[in-house]
Amino acid sequence: MGILSLSLFQAMLRMSMPVLFAALGGMFCERAGVVNIGLEGIMLNSAFFAVLATFLSGSPWIGFLSGVLSGVGLGVVIAILTVKYSGNQIVVGTGINVFGLGFSAFMCQKIWGSRGASGSVAGLPLLRVPYLEQVLGENTILIYVAFALIILSHLFLFHTPWGLRLRAVGENPQAADTAGVNVHRYKMVFVTLGSGITGLGGVFLSLAHLSFFAWGMTSGRGFMGLAAMIFGKWTPLGCFLASLLFGFTDALQMRVQALGILPSQIILLFPYVVTILVLSGFVGKALPPSDYKPYEKR
């Protein structure tokens, strides 16, 4: 039956993971009223630290933790710069992206003697889950973390008081402030949390999808996450479905490449073309949480 099969579905799911983590992470930042275009840099940085920590300790679990923590670390930096010092969110995000690209290359050169790639390390082990495995394919724990995150984020945002306050902070910080919500604290916490979640995407790339770090290995998936978040209308379920679309084009691209009917350069464009179509409003207008400006108390 060729390219449409269970294995294609499983590939789609796998390829959608990094995009999904970035989308969920970006969603939390934007719900707090901060545009985080540094997702790409955060992810790359986390991918690097995950491999580095695994290399040094020999345990992929320590690598996992380091990857997430490095995301949290960059999140704190972004939060301090954009929330505390009211820095321009686009400039800060771009800075983070440039930093991620340069820093990982530099460290890679220092440690492994090559800017292009690290040595191979132990990846995360596959998780044995009876029955589910038949459908979802062999996966590491990250895919189950992702499903849990989608459900928890949804419950948090729409069914708890703190979710309501977070939504209010992003939409109209003045209103939240007059209602007695600590706007700055919410922004700091959720920008940091969102960046940590994005870090999971990096961990997925370097410890689950592959088991080494390669320079620029995120190849735009942070930006695709941004696109998926917009396409998904800033909701966890929407982010999930949109990420599946990106995962699908990615998986399809690999299959078509294997068939050898189109030049591979053109096939490689698939996910990016979809990104552009999504971002140019081709799929319908999306209303963002309205206030991206730094909030300053009178």
């Binding site: 008081p161 309501l164 109209n172 007059t178 209602a179 919500v181």
Partner: peptide, 29 residues
């Protein structure tokens, strides 16, 4: 009541009213 209203336009009326003082059971609204 301020001259420029301090409401969150995208939220529903009751959500705006309870914002900051939400009744809850456990962790849920």
């Amino acid at each position: 009541v301020h001259q420029n209203l301090t409401l969150v336009p995208q939220l529903r009326v009751f959500e705006n009213i309870i914002l900051g003082q939400e009744p809850r059971r456990g962790i849920f609204l």
